[in-house]
Computed example of a mutant assay.
Amino acid sequence: MTVVEQIVARNIEAVIVYESEQVIAFADHDPINFGHILICPKSPYETLLQVPESILAEIHRVARDLYVRIERKFSPDGITLVQNNGHFNELSHYHLHIFPAISGIVLRLDVMISILNLKMFCVPHLRGYRCLGKY
């Protein structure tokens, strides 16, 4: 059972911000920034190519809604959406990341690849978030 399936079954606690019959969205347990949300199909598809079009469409509708909500709540400089496949999908379950982007903190692909799940920065003044430095 994947971590996402365990969250859906309520075997693992999560802050759920959206849920339907096919899709669930929840706060990342190890966020790279405040407001970091994962949007996932409830079924355990591993890659983008395996997810049915109707579920991908719902995931994108949820992403658009969360985009607006994140902008209103945090007033970031931008919004980042990232989706990893293959070796870089450490959940073995398709998921789309959405999180606020802050000026001066740059996403570096070499750093992302080396640590596999985008955990390369946070906003240093926020408590409780891992800060690996500005790049």
Rank of each mutant, 00 (worst) to 15 (best):
I7C: 08
N33C: 09
N33T: 14
F26E: 06
A63D: 05
Y94T: 04
Q22D: 15
A9K: 15
L66E: 15
C131A: 03
Q6K: 15
H93T: 14
F34C: 00
Y129S: 00
H93Q: 12
E71W: 00
L96Y: 05
A27C: 14
C40G: 08
H29G: 10
P124W: 00
F99C: 12
F121R: 03
S114A: 14
Y94P: 03
Y45L: 12
R10A: 14
H87N: 10
I79P: 00
S75G: 02
M112P: 00
E53K: 05
L48W: 11
E58W: 14
F99K: 05
H97P: 01
E19N: 13
H95D: 10
E90D: 12
H97R: 03
I32R: 08
N84D: 13
K73F: 07
R61V: 06
Y129R: 00
E71A: 03
H125T: 09
Q50F: 00
V106P: 01
L118W: 04
R72G: 12
V68C: 04
L66H: 10
P76F: 11
P31L: 04
I16H: 13
I7E: 05
E19C: 14
A9Q: 15
V3A: 06
V62A: 01
I105N: 07
D110V: 02
V3Q: 09
N117Y: 10
F99M: 13
S43P: 02
G78H: 08
Q6G: 06
L48M: 11
L126H: 05
F26R: 10
L38F: 07
R108L: 14
E46W: 01
I37C: 07
G128V: 11
Q22H: 15
L48V: 14
I12Q: 01
A25P: 05
L116D: 13
I55S: 08
I16R: 11
D28W: 07
L126K: 06
P100C: 01
A57V: 08
D110H: 03
F88K: 04
I12K: 10
V82A: 09
P52G: 09
R127F: 02
L38C: 02
L118N: 08
I59L: 15
F99G: 10
P124K: 14
F74T: 03
T80Q: 06
A25F: 03
V8A: 14
C40F: 04
